[in-house]
């Protein structure tokens, strides 16, 4: 005859086990709380904003008009209306708000192209930001641009000067 006196021991054991598991789970789960910083939301907002601004800079204001963005890229690293102006106009677009401008945004413009050798090279188009450390939480937004035969000034000589080409304007955007 089997004695059922051990049943309560079993129940107790199971209860203790469950309680221990729950406690362990709770301890682990409460230490990894999702915070707004983890959720990439600021990244998403910044990326959307940057993409919008680049797309709008690439949209001519009139039919048969020309794209502002392509104009800047054609001027390469030239001081006037070149990469730096591109960066400044881009930032002006990003900072626009209905209230005070959103002033602590920074950007850096790069250009990627296929070299005459066939590899892909990336060169800065705007002058480097002295406060950029490389540790900032940046987002990268890009836009395709078609360039005519002439190589824009200030671009390394391995960019073809004999054919029209498609290049990629890359903008690093971050909050200072």
């Amino acid at each position: 005859m089997v004695n059922d006196a051990g049943q309560l021991y079993t129940m107790e054991g199971i209860a203790a086990g469950v309680i221990m598991l729950l406690t362990a789970y709770i301890v682990v789960s409460t230490t990894s709380v999702y915070t707004a910083g983890d959720t990439h939301i600021p990244d998403m907002q910044l990326e959307q904003l940057g993409s919008d601004v680049l797309a709008m800079m690439d949209t001519p204001d009139t039919n048969r008009g020309t794209s502002e963005l392509v104009g800047f890229v054609k001027n390469g690293t030239r001081v006037m209306m070149g990469g730096n102006t591109l960066r400044d106009r881009f930032l002006a677009g990003c900072k626009m708000r209905s209230g005070d401008p959103d002033d602590n945004l920074r950007a850096q413009v790069y250009l990627s192209y296929r070299t005459t050798g066939g590899s892909v090279n990336t060169t800065p188009l705007s002058s480097p930001d002295p406060e950029f450390t490389g540790r900032e939480n940046t987002v990268r937004v890009t836009r395709w641009v078609q360039l005519p035969t002439e190589k824009p000034p200030g671009i390394p000589i391995d960019m073809s000067n004999t054919r029209s080409k498609a290049v990629l304007v890359e903008v690093l955007l971050w909050r200072a």
Binding site: S112, Y113, R114, G118, S119, V120, T122, T142, W144, K165, A166, V167, L168, E170
Partner: peptide, 10 residues
């Protein structure tokens, strides 16, 4: 250009 840069940069 588009194919190569897409692969390399994106």
């Amino acid at each position: 250009d588009i194919v190569a840069i897409s692969l390399e940069r994106k």
